[in-house]
Nucleic acid binder design. Sequence first.
DNA 1: CGCCAGGGCTAGC
DNA 2: GCTAGCCATGGC
Length: 282
Amino acid sequence: MVEGAADFEPKHIFECGQCFRWSEEDDGSYTGVALHRVINVRKQDCNLVIGNTSLSDFYNTWYDYFDLGRDYGAIKKELSSDDVLSEAARFGDGIRILKQDESETLISFIISSNNRIPMIKREVGRLSEGWGDPIRYRGRTYYTFPSLEKLAQASVEEIKSCGMGFRAQYIKDTCRIILDDDIPLYRMKDMDYRKARKILMGLPGVGPKVSDCVLLFSMRHYEAFPVDVWVKRVMRHYYLAPDVSLPKIELYAQQRFGGLAGFAQQYLFYFARDLKGKEISD
DNA sequence: CGCCAGGGCTAGC
DNA sequence: GCTAGCCATGGC
């Protein structure tokens, strides 16, 4: 399946810290599990090629998941009035912000707290193997991310055995609260950003950083500006004083980048991670 | 306020 | 090759 696709670079999309269930194949393509399906994605010349899907799935599911209706060229152009972002956007050319499943994103980013990307991937994978559904593709078995109902049935000890440590209790409690209190997780994309954020932050294991990741990567709240250690370094180095607080960094970014703050965050994160500590150490 | 809680990656030797 | 620091949240 081929579509002409500008501003679509699989490596940048899948390795900019927003998702944990995609892996690179030997041929450079990416295979991932999302929305109860397994697909393979690659860029061929200027076209996007999606394997293991249908025309109707493309339009009903992947078009929105990959945010294909948005003009990222215009976003980059608007952000590039800033020298730092101009360079970061050029470096991260082809990044797109995915519209991922809300509950998967919430649980995944609870796991991300005080954690590193390779470990988050492993733990999310183990949760899926334990409570998700198997899908066979190209001779391998993949597992869908489990529903909140399935996860709520697991014991804290079982979740802990996936390598989760102290986060296991947060996951168990968050599942229960969402189900028992009818938290409208799937309606938060239509709510005001502040209101949705307040609800998320009421859940155990969910602070400002985790909230903003869920709001940005699954609910299309693009004013969210998650400040992790990399974004903190790059913002303090290029824009602000070296000791400025995290909430002030977020406020500054929202004032400077407005409704495009989330896109700016993705370019800056990917850029900063490549710099490692070379130019922007604390 | 400052410390701690899995555990394994990762920078710095 | 080794080791100490680190990571975002909540509890104390």
